[in-house]
Computed example of a mutant assay.
Amino acid sequence: MSSTTQRRGDWIQTYSGAQFWPMDPRAGDIRLQDIAHALSMLCRYTGHCKRFYSVAEHSVLLSEVVEPKHRLWALLHDASEAYLVDVPRPVKPFLTGYREAEGEIMLCVAERFGLSATMPKAVKEADNRILTDEATQNMSAPPVPWSNMGEPLGVTLRYWSPERAEREFLEAVEAALVEAEAA
């Protein structure tokens, strides 16, 4: 189904078969199934790890250690990567327009799922701390210490297959949505 509405830029086809304009996102275009599937297929650290470890699993692990009120944000904190891929942190500042595109998509994700427009500080801190767990469990010894290594979060990586990561992610989001409605 081709859209007749004028949009900025070109579109990508998502897992569900829908059109998505990364440079002109709309909250109504965000689909949980597309996010879950894409994040389950994306390997963290641009694949430079010992074992496959998906962004979806990373998000589920993060959601398990934050306060219940932040679970949905933790699960969806990397949702823009479903549409823009997982760009390594050291590269992002050098990609003109990337942070803006990422920010626009995340605003749409926040609107679509009823989240605050900005990521809670607790989620950002946990996201930074999980780097230490991931590095020590799934990366080769670094030639020099990483500049952003801090206190580990204390999670154990599970190395889910993409199929399991997608399923676990969807179940965790559904549970977090029910939890958020009850609050």
Rank of each mutant, 00 (worst) to 15 (best):
P143D: 08
P90I: 03
Y98K: 01
Y45C: 08
Q33M: 13
H58Q: 08
E81F: 10
L75H: 03
S116C: 12
V109C: 07
A175I: 05
P88F: 02
Y53N: 11
Q19E: 14
P93Q: 04
H37V: 02
V123E: 05
L75C: 03
P143K: 10
A79S: 08
P88E: 06
Y15I: 11
T46F: 15
A117I: 15
S80W: 03
A82F: 04
H77P: 07
W146F: 13
D133E: 04
A182G: 10
V173L: 02
E179N: 02
L157H: 05
V87N: 04
G17M: 07
C49V: 06
S63A: 13
S140A: 15
D86L: 09
I12G: 09
T4I: 12
Q33F: 10
G47S: 08
V144F: 13
I12R: 09
M149H: 12
I105A: 11
E100A: 09
M41W: 07
G103I: 08
T156N: 10
L61A: 01
F52P: 11
E104L: 07
A165G: 01
T132C: 08
L61K: 04
Q137C: 00
V155H: 01
T132F: 10
E64D: 13
E171Y: 13
S3V: 10
S2D: 14
A126N: 01
E179S: 06
Y98I: 00
I30K: 03
S54T: 11
D127P: 02
R89L: 15
M119F: 13
H48P: 02
E174I: 15
D133T: 03
P143R: 07
V109T: 08
P120V: 12
N148D: 15
L75R: 00
S80E: 12
Y15H: 14
Y98N: 00
P90S: 09
Q137L: 10
